[in-house]
Amino acid sequence: MSLVVSHLSKTFGEKRAVDDLSFTMEKPGVFGLIGTNGAGKTTTIRMILGIMPADSGEAKWNDTIISRETLPFGYMPEERGIYMKNKVMEQLIYFGVLHGMNKTDAQNSAKQLLGRLEVSEYADMPAEKLSKGNQQKIQLIATLIHDPELIFLDEPFSGLDPVNAKQLSEVLSELVDRKKYIVMSSHQMSTVEEYCEDILILDRGQTKLQGNLRQIKSEYGHTNLIVSCKEDILPLAQNCGLQLIEKRANETEFHITGDEMAQSFLKVLVEKGYPLTKYEIKEPSLNEIFIDKVGNPDA
């Protein structure tokens, strides 16, 4: 099974929303579509799903153009939308039947997922009586009710409290274990870093970077050094050419040019007899890579 997206483009008026976007997903897992707000993530997903026509390009699942008729995919939109006045179970069955299930199967699947996400007690309540987090769980159940092979989650973690976020993480892990193909769009780098093996960074419709996250990081090399020490190491670090990234309560992070710089700084600290509790040489975070490629979104 594979998802192949080739040369997708879309223009709204004068604005190029997505420009010649391509990527491939050849094994199960989570693919991260990253970008700031308005980068073109949602438009990309809608074009892949065939609910918005692309100006050019195509998206295929197992060599077949994707559409609601050819593939029962799952899609959780960024803007959550469920029927507020209708009972939870009633609308889940409705969505399930629209996905091609029979009523009994839809009901059984809904029951199972409600139980898994610990919201069974709300089955016969109108959605408007649920908290936002629980409404989001219902939205996720509506996405997964027909057990799709290909799943699109548009900003799935936004607005979730830590408890619900953990529960969603567990569900994601289970889906990956069950060999599902998941495309997740997000602008929360830590989330993507945690789940995605492959990523694509979008900036105003342009693909800025794509590939295997581990490989991308390794290409950047060891660029960061985290040191935890009771003594004031900043003057020594500056003398050795290290650039301060951030000073936190218990540790300090520096930018280094490579492993040699880290080794020579370690030697200086040992010679001085500074007691070290942490000395970690690491690759840049996805957030740093993103800023490097796109610029600071908050700037």
């Binding site: 609910i51 939109p77 939308g81 029927y83 969505f95 629209l98």
Partner: peptide, 13 residues
């Protein structure tokens, strides 16, 4: 306006 359409549109034409 309640964005249900976003969920609905992927299920049905």
């Amino acid at each position: 306006t309640s964005r249900v359409m976003e969920t609905l549109i992927v299920c049905a034409k």
